[in-house]
Every structure is written in structure tokens, then in C-alpha cells.
Amino acid sequence: MKIPYYPGCTLHERALDFDKASRECARALDIELEELEIWTCCGAVFPLTTDSVMDILAGVRNLAYASRLGDKVVTLCSFCYNVLKRANKVMRDDPEKREKANLFLKADTDAREGIESYLKEDYTGQVDVLHYIEMLRDVVGFDKIRERTKADLSGLKVAPYYGCMLLRPKKEMEFDDPEQPQIFEDFLEAIGCDVVDFPMKTECCGGFQIVREEDTAVACSQTVVNSASRRGADVIITTCPLCRYNLDELQKKMEKSVTGFRKIPVIYFTQLLGIALGIDEECLDFSDNYVDPRPLLAEKSLV
């Protein structure tokens, strides 16, 4: 089965490891992620000011591209998922902004001579934005994943980190309970891990503050990492490249400032899925991780 796929900038650059693992896992589960033929950055952050039509255009344009391929689009990055889903909701619910955005898209199309018009008709939110984990649950089914799981992950204590953008705002994301989410727990249970519940799983990693005020991001990330660590996690999983970066890379700072700091690897959830499904190690690239998960995985005979 083919499903349209929007990777977003980060998965094409800094998070190639995430993109690769995710495509391989999909393939192993009989799904081909069909990358949109043209796409751009989604804008990364959804504008919270009421007058911003320009700021949602990038998201809308990508949704309009996606509508050429099918009625849904799958994405992985939490920021992309948040922006696309919220922009889509604007296109569904706000007639004034919908009209304006379509006028922009039309002007954009007209200006691109030689490129096939991507906008055949007004975009009205007809595409469903799916997160990859939702695809696993609703399209593939966790039961099928359970059946296909080859590796024995029992005893591997995994802390699922949700962060902010998947869950909030609840009314627009409609992803899971923002206080007690369950979807990654269910996923981890399906692939046979020991799930570690930790209180900071929905707290912020510091996000883009890493660019402005690194100390702030370190403080936030440290709260999250410590919490998982105290609950005995061997590894943290995430679906956001920025969370991965902050939680993993910033451990460099944490270990300097905290004596006896226990480092803990942070990997993408599809990398763990890849291990569970017995996907070729070459497809699971851990070379970019500051805290190398491979010794842990070797210890558990998983690589």
C-alpha cells in the first residue's frame, strides 16, 4: 500500500537517520511511503497570532501538494505534524482565511510557468494529516506489528517521550490525552518492551530556545532526561528531531555540570521499531547520536 509522505526539511538534512529507519520499517510492514514530488518547509511553527494568513501558507501549500496524491499524508516530525494539522484545520473551519490562502496559492501557481499547476481546485482541508504512529496503529495495526516483531525486546526499559507538539493544543491535534497519553505505550507494548512511565513525558525539552538561550534548553532537557533516568529507563524514544537533539546532544553539558550524571541514549521510535522488526542494521544509523545506544543494544543482544 502506498501512502503519501511529507518528510519535511529536518528529515532531509539533520535527521536522515530518522527518515531512513521510518521508510524501512514501513516497507517491512507492507507500506510504501510515497514522498510528495514537490514540497517545501512547513514553516516549523504554527502562528499563534490571529491575523497570520501568510504564516500558514507554507503548510497549506504542502497540503495542497499532498492532495494530488491521495486523501491523507503521513509525517514524522512533531513540528511538521503540528503545523500541517493546525493549518489544515484552519482550511477546514475558517472560510475567510481559506479564501485568502487559496488566492495566494493560485497566484503562486500562476507565477510558476512550466511547472504543472499543483492547485487544480481550492484546497479546503480535504487531506487527513496522519502521524506515522497513527499510521502504525490505524492503518497497519499494532497487532500486525506484534506478529512481525522478531527481536526479543523484553527487559529493555523504554521511556516514551511525547514532548509538546504532538499533544497540544488538544482540541486541534486530537492526537491523545495531553496529560496521560497512551499511544506510544501501546506501541512499545506491541513490540515487547518494558514501558517506563515517567512524569516528564509531556514536558517541554526547551524546543527552539536552543538557538537563543542554550542554558534554558539544557535545564528543560535535563528535567526530562533525569525523570526518565530516575524511573530506570535504558533508553528514551522520541518522534521529534529537535527533542532528539536537545535531549541527546545537551547531555554533553549535563554530564559536565552534574557529578554522577547517568547518560541515557535517545533514539527515534522507528529506530527501535526497526530493531524489533529485525531490519538490516545498515538502515539503522546511530552515528549521529551523542549518547551511543549501540553498547546498550549489544548488551541486550539487539545488534
Binding site: 538534512e13 539533520r14 518547509c41 516549523a44 511553527v45 504564516d55 513540528f79 524546543g207 529537535l242
Partner: peptide, 12 residues
């Protein structure tokens, strides 16, 4: 840094 972080920070 991941691209999303840089773009996000610049936009915000």
C-alpha cells in the same frame, strides 16, 4: 542544530 529549530527560532 536541526533545521526545524533554526527556522522555528527565527520565525518566533
Amino acid at each position: 542544530a536541526p533545521q526545524m529549530g533554526v527556522v522555528g527560532a527565527l520565525r518566533k
